[in-house]
Design a protein around this nucleic acid. Structure first.
Lengths: 203, 203
DNA sequence: GTCTATACCGCGATAGAC
DNA sequence: GTCTATCGCGGTATAGAC
């Protein structure tokens, strides 16, 4: 509670530093994955010491958290509803992700590392999967009420499968970028949703 | 080509050592994941020095390769055909995996880490996905010729999706073991294969 | 041929100087 | 606010004991 910002340029400079570090961290994490990334390299690229970087974020794990948030915000901005995506737009999502392999790989690696309960990424992904699973199931239920989706399918299981396909296709694609994720996703959607309804969504 | 074994107990002892190390490595990797596992701990559990372990396998990465092979052999023994599994038996596979979360997590983590081209696991998984994708597609094609599977589906895309679901469900399950992977897998299979045909397979 | 002891460098975290 | 110094721990290359 000392100096609410604005009186001098110091805070702005700090914010700029944070932005620089964050951008660089995304870069390095993307290239090397979380575990293999070093504070040293990030610091070197930003042009400051390791402890300098640590000062701004408090540690490697905290830097990770910040990166995850960034991506979350970007996604939430692109598609509405807190990262939850309507099944109709999953193909669109897949196509978009195919344009940024680095970020896809980062998330794939972090999601795997986060399966350890003592991992820093664990709470984030636990919460994330919980949310998007619930949100996707809601979408499916709504779609079933409208008659756009087969009514005999368990919405919760459909949500699990859709998210699983999403994640799983990305892994395979990271190993072989010639694979057509969108086509595979479309195949699945076309059997559960009507042949094609990317139609005019309200949002 | 010196001493084809049998004349003295030295070779047998070495083989035993390798087995001990391998078993312990699987244990530790399973508990901690690859990156977080330490050569030191593995060596300590086996009861020898770190360099002693390194002597037998040449390094942490090489130990990893050996662990991957072990698992591959176990799977190939349980289900025939070089790790390729008939779609009819995927639910069975899922149920089996649900009994060994440690190994599932290890593979999930390694598959993610392996997406980096410079990773030691990269060649293994590149080859593995290639093989099982081809093998699964063949199964689907055969199933289509028999009329047991819808003929209008692209076998290659179906293979991609089936494998993706397999992998993706495991990730979600690692975050929430209350999820029913088998039910989700069944839901998908039941829409593409006939309502249910776990029937009498020859093998 | 099998293993131990030693040493080296890189990592992340922390305390304290400027 | 930023950096220097230092710590313990990680993997591994080498030499030499048995």
């Amino acid at each position: 509670m000392k100096r609410p910002a604005g009186s001098r340029g110091e805070y702005a400079k700090t914010a700029q530093r944070r932005q620089d570090i964050l951008r660089t961290a995304v870069e390095v994490f993307t290239e090397r994955g979380y575990e293999a990334s070093s504070f040293r390299e990030i610091a070197a690229r930003v042009g400051m010491s390791e402890t300098g970087v640590a000062f701004h974020f408090g540690g490697k794990a905290a830097l990770l958290a910040a990166v995850l948030e960034i991506r979350g915000e970007q996604d939430a901005a692109r598609w509405g509803g807190g990262g939850v995506i309507a099944p109709d737009r999953l193909t669109e999502l897949v196509a978009h992700n195919a344009g940024q392999p680095g970020m896809v790989q980062l998330f794939t690696k972090l999601a795997a590392e986060g399966t350890s309960k003592n991992s820093r990424a664990h709470p984030f992904f636990t919460d994330r999967y919980d949310k998007i699973r619930r949100g996707t199931a809601d979408h499916v239920r709504a779609s079933q009420r409208d008659g756009r989706t087969r009514a005999d399918l368990d919405p919760d299981l459909v949500a699990q499968v859709l998210i699983a396909v999403m994640d799983g296709l990305q892994v395979q694609w990271l190993y072989d970028e010639s694979l057509d994720m969108a086509a595979a996703m479309d195949l699945l959607l076309s059997t559960w949703l009507p042949p094609h309804t990317p139609g005019p969504v309200t949002a």
